[in-house]
Simulated assay, not measured.
Amino acid sequence: MRYFLYPLRFSAPVHFGTAECGGGLEHTRFTLPADTFFSALLSELYHAKENAYADTLLQKVEAGHLRCSDLLPWREAATGEWCFYLPRPILPMMQAADTDSVSLSYRAACEETAAWKQQKRLAYIRASRMTEYLANVRAGRPFLSEDSFGQEVLRQRVNCREIEALPYFVASFTFAESAGLYLLLAAEQAEDADFFADILTFVGHSGLGGKRSSGYGKFQLADDCLELDGTGIYGADDAALYTLLTQEQASWQMALSSVLPAEEDLLAVCRGNYHLRRVGGFVTDAAVPGKKDSICLLESGSCFQQRIPGQMTNLGTYDGHPILRYGYGLYAGISG
């Protein structure tokens, strides 16, 4: 497989729903899981009557010719280097017992404790610093990173559709001018990468996520699609991405997309470290919303001893069409 990178720049705030918080409008995330992203692509293409593009995309994915990651954060540093981030690996956090800890001063002990607490909030790590992070984990040292991609805002709105106007709140995330999200695509041929770029350009006009009727979620490609080859066109991070994506024999394989394992892969899952995310809900663009079946996916950042292929599943039927959920894996090899 060949690996391609698409940097996306958002011209409007985004609202990406969080089912783990009840799916309310007052909560949002700023990254987008691969399963939700893929569903949004198909939905938008079919809604725009671009059935040929949608059918071709679905066929290429089901045939194994295309695999995509979550939408992950990137930002441009003050030096002009582009920084690409990966999920924090879900590995046992071995905070080693420090034999010299009894000699720490009270101030030093407080600083060390604060550093460990700060690391617990760390969700994404620069690709070029992944080796440093893993070395700190093995040594029982906290890893600190001060990275910002934008700002989350809670805005008040008023529902005027009822007899009585009622207020409600909408959370959104506004990316900094020099930040956005990027997508990794594994494709067999360069033509597949161009095909996917056309889809992203088309969907960018209507946007991703919720509240699109208010203009949310619109984006465009921040640069041309880049084929990763280890040369580091943008800086150290895209070179590191290529190395991690091609390390198929590493001791741990970290998922960069939400994975739905097949029954025969459950033993391999049990030997790994993972978080689960429940998905389901309703078909929201229907006049009478239809309930979808619920399933649990392995979150990106989950680590296994082998690359679990994953699968596509059917969550039900709406208007005579299957409701599909993307669950194929894309992985980065790491040495935990």
Rank of each mutant, 00 (worst) to 15 (best):
Leu330Lys: 04
Asp285Trp: 14
Tyr234Ala: 00
Glu20Asn: 10
Glu81His: 09
Phe219Cys: 03
Ala240Trp: 03
Gly180Leu: 02
Thr174Ala: 12
Ala123Trp: 05
Lys211His: 05
Tyr106Ser: 14
Ala176Ser: 14
Ala78Val: 13
Ala262Pro: 02
Gly272Leu: 13
Leu86Val: 05
Leu244Phe: 04
Ile233Cys: 11
Ser258Phe: 12
Gln119Asn: 10
Glu177Asn: 03
Gln95Thr: 15
Ile334Phe: 05
Gly209Asn: 06
Arg126Asn: 08
Ala77Glu: 15
Pro309His: 11
Lys211Gln: 06
Ala262Gly: 09
Cys160Asn: 13
Phe149Asn: 01
Gly316Lys: 07
Thr201Asn: 07
Ser257Gly: 04
Phe196Val: 03
Gly217Cys: 13
Val170Phe: 00
Gln156Ile: 13
Phe304Trp: 10
Ala127Met: 08
Val61His: 10
Ala97Gly: 09
Phe38Tyr: 15
Ala179Leu: 04
Pro92Glu: 15
Tyr85Arg: 04
Met93Arg: 14
Gln311Tyr: 02
Leu57Tyr: 06
Pro261Ala: 10
Glu164Gly: 00
Gln119Asp: 10
Met254Ile: 06
Arg121Glu: 15
Ala40Cys: 11
Gln151His: 05
Phe10His: 11
Leu256Trp: 08
Leu245Thr: 05
Glu177Trp: 01
Ser300Lys: 11
Val259Trp: 03
Tyr216His: 15
Gly204Pro: 00
Ala54Asp: 08
Ile308Phe: 01
Phe143Lys: 05
Ala186His: 00
Lys292Asn: 12
Leu42Arg: 07
Asp55Cys: 01
Phe282Lys: 01
Gly207Asn: 03
Pro322Ala: 13
Leu104His: 11
Glu50Leu: 09
Leu134Glu: 12
Lys120Val: 13
Gly316Glu: 02
Ser39Asp: 12
His15Phe: 09
Pro167Asp: 15
Leu330Met: 11
Gly230Phe: 09
Leu315Glu: 09
Ser148Trp: 13
Glu62Cys: 14
Leu183Arg: 03
Leu66Thr: 01
Gly290Gln: 06
Leu154Lys: 02
Arg9Lys: 15
Leu256Ser: 09
Glu264Asp: 10
Tyr216Cys: 15
His205Ala: 11
Leu134Thr: 08
Arg88Lys: 07
Val259Tyr: 03
Leu241Ile: 10
Leu104Cys: 06
Glu188Arg: 02
Leu8Gln: 02
Val259Glu: 01
Ala286Gly: 13
Trp82Val: 00
Gln249Val: 10
Pro7Asn: 09
Gly210Trp: 01
Arg9Met: 09
Gly272Trp: 12
Leu57Lys: 11
Ala96Lys: 14
Ile163Cys: 00
Glu162Thr: 00
Arg141Cys: 12
Ser302Thr: 12
Pro92Tyr: 14
Asn314Met: 10
Ile295Ala: 05
Ala287Asn: 15
Arg155Glu: 00
